[in-house]
Design a protein around this nucleic acid. Sequence first.
DNA 1: GGGTACGGCTTACAACGTAAACCACTCACC
DNA 2: GGTGAGTGGTTTACGTTGTAAGCCGTACCC
Lengths: 246, 246
Amino acid sequence: MSEEDVYPDADRAAVDDEPAPSERVPLSRERIVSAALDFIDANGLPGLTMRRLGEQLGVEAMSLYRYVPSKEDLLDAVVESLVADVRSDDVVLGAPRDGWQDFLQRLAHGVRRMALAHPKAFPLVASRPAEAPWLRPPLRSLEMVETFLSGLIEEGFSDEAAVDGYRAYTSFLLGHLLLEVAVHGADVGPLDVLDDQTGEPGTSHHPTVARLRDPLSQDRSAVEFEEALEALLDRMTVSRNEHLAD
Amino acid sequence: MSEEDVYPDADRAAVDDEPAPSERVPLSRERIVSAALDFIDANGLPGLTMRRLGEQLGVEAMSLYRYVPSKEDLLDAVVESLVADVRSDDVVLGAPRDGWQDFLQRLAHGVRRMALAHPKAFPLVASRPAEAPWLRPPLRSLEMVETFLSGLIEEGFSDEAAVDGYRAYTSFLLGHLLLEVAVHGADVGPLDVLDDQTGEPGTSHHPTVARLRDPLSQDRSAVEFEEALEALLDRMTVSRNEHLAD
DNA sequence: GGGTACGGCTTACAACGTAAACCACTCACC
DNA sequence: GGTGAGTGGTTTACGTTGTAAGCCGTACCC
C-alpha cells in the first residue's frame, strides 16, 4: 500500500531523501522563471546564481540549461513575465479605453503596482529596455510603442508631440518608480549599505531629511506620483491643443 | 649616454619591453579611478575587469588593491569622481545663486552634461544612490541634500513641499537622463543586442517609431528636457505659493 | 651596510557561467 | 519482452572573475 511498492526504484528511494522521480514536479521553463523571480524578490538580484537557483528547485544548476539557453535569457524572461503581469492586469487593459489620458493613467498605475510588488526586481526591468517597451525606446518588440504612438496620433497629436509625449511619459515612469523602489527597499535588503561613520541607517540630524524616510513617506510618494502624473498629462494636453490650433 | 647606464637594472631593462621602474608613472588611486572611467567610457561597464584595468595601466591586477580596497569601492570612487565633476562645474556652482529655480536649473544642466559626456558610466551613477545625492534619497553623504532642502525652506517652502520637490526633481533627472543616455549609446556599444528576427537594429515600418531614433532625435530630447524641467519648476513654484497663501 | 617600508608580482582559491559527456528512466515498436 | 531512441537530470571540467597571502626588488634612514 505504501508508495515504495508502486515505483520500481523503491529500494533506492527509501535511502534517498529526495522524492522518487515520478512524484517530483517536473522542471519547466515557467517554473524556472517564476522561481528566479521569487529568488530575486527574496534575496536580491546580485544573489541570484544558477547554482543557487537550481538548489532552490531541488535540482543541479546544469539542469536549468535544458529549458533556458543562458542566464541572460533567463533574466530577460523574468522581465517579460513582469511585463506580462502588467499587461494582463484587469485594471490596466480590462476596461474599454476612455480616451488617451485614461489609458495612460491606468497603464502608469499598473506599472507602479508591479514595481512596488517586486522592488528588488524592478531595476532589472529598467535596465532591459528591449523587454519593457513602456520604459525605454526599444530596439525590438515595437508593437506596444506603435499602438501607444498611433493612439496618440489618432487622438489629434502631431507626430512630434506624440514622440515627445512618449518620451516624457516613459522617463516619468522610469524615474519615479526607480526612486520609489529604491527607498522602499532601502531598509529591507540585506545587501544595502549603511552609514559609514555610525553604522546605522541614515540618521541625519536634519529634521527634513529624516522625513524622506519616515513611515508616512510611502503615502507621500504615492500622492507625489499622482500629482506628477496628472501634471504630465495636463502638459501633454496643452501641447496637443497648441498644435491643433494651428 | 643611454638610459640603461643610469639605472642599476640596465641589463634587465635592455631585454624587457617595460620601462625602467624609475621612469614609469607611479600608480595612484586617482590614476586608477580615472583609468576605470576611461575604460567604461570606451568598453562599457560589463567589460571592466580588475585584470583588464591593470593591463591598461601596465600593471598586474593585484597591484590595484594597494590603492583600492575592492572593485565595489572602485566603482563608488568612479561615481564620486563624476559627482565631483558636476560639483566643480563653473556653470553649476560658479555664479552666485539667483534664487532656487536658477540653482536647480543650473544643477540639472550640469548633471545632464556629465551624463551625456559619459553615457556608458551614467547607469552606474544611477544605481549607486549613496554617492549621488541629487539622484536618490541617500543613506549617507547627506550634506548636499540638506543644503538642497534648507535652500528651498529658506525660500518659503514648507517642509512637505520641500521634500516633495526634492523627490520630483530627483526622479525627473533620473528618468530623463537614464532614458536619454540609453538611446544615445544604443547604436554605439558593441554589447548591445540587435533585432532577433532581422538582425538589424530597430527597423520599424512605423514612421513615427523611426523618429525616436533618427539624428534629429537628440535635439528633440534636449528641448523636451528643457520643457519638462521648466514645467517641473513651475509646478514647484505653484505648490510653494499655495502654501504661502495659507 | 643593514633594517624597514613601499610597490608591484606571483601564486592560489572559491565561486561563477556554461560546454560536453554521461547516466537513468520512459515509451513506442518489432 | 527486448530494444531503440528520446527525455531529463547529473557529473565533470574549463575559463574567468574577485581577491587573500606571501614573495621580492628597490629606496631610503640609521
